[in-house]
């Protein structure tokens, strides 16, 4: 068994257009390394240069936001389903340092 990962439209350029890919890992960090080996560049859209999860990307393990599960240290099991969603955010003013997730 493997871990199923649902990839949002904006990141499907890394997965050859696939909406669902499979990976393996004991933790989210391990899974992202595994995914990056198959889909080069994907990890860089999810992790900051400092090594933390991007503030404006949401990653879920089954029904939980990984921020509540230890973020990159979140423990994973075979059969888990991971969902990645870019945050839907914006607003009139007050830009925070968030553009990096979108590769700009």
């Amino acid at each position: 068994m493997a871990i199923e990962v649902r990839v949002p439209t904006i990141l499907r350029s890394y997965t050859g257009g696939s909406k669902i890919v499979e990976g393996a890992g004991d933790t989210l960090s391990g899974l992202l390394d595994d995914l990056d080996a198959k889909h080069s560049g994907l990890k860089g859209r999810l992790i900051t240069p400092e090594g933390g999860l991007h503030r404006f990307v949401n990653i879920y393990v089954n029904d939980e936001d990984v921020r509540f599960l230890g973020a990159l240290d979140a423990k994973l099991n075979d059969g888990d389903s991971i969902t990645i969603l870019p945050a839907v955010a914006g607003g009139a003013l007050g830009f925070a340092a968030a553009a990096a997730f979108f590769g700009r």
Binding site: A89, G91, A92
Partner: peptide
Amino acid sequence: HSHTATEAYPSRTDVSFAGEPG
């Protein structure tokens, strides 16, 4: 979304965050 004190035009923030190209 709404802008409550400015025009209905995407801000830099809106553009940077726009993650649904469709």
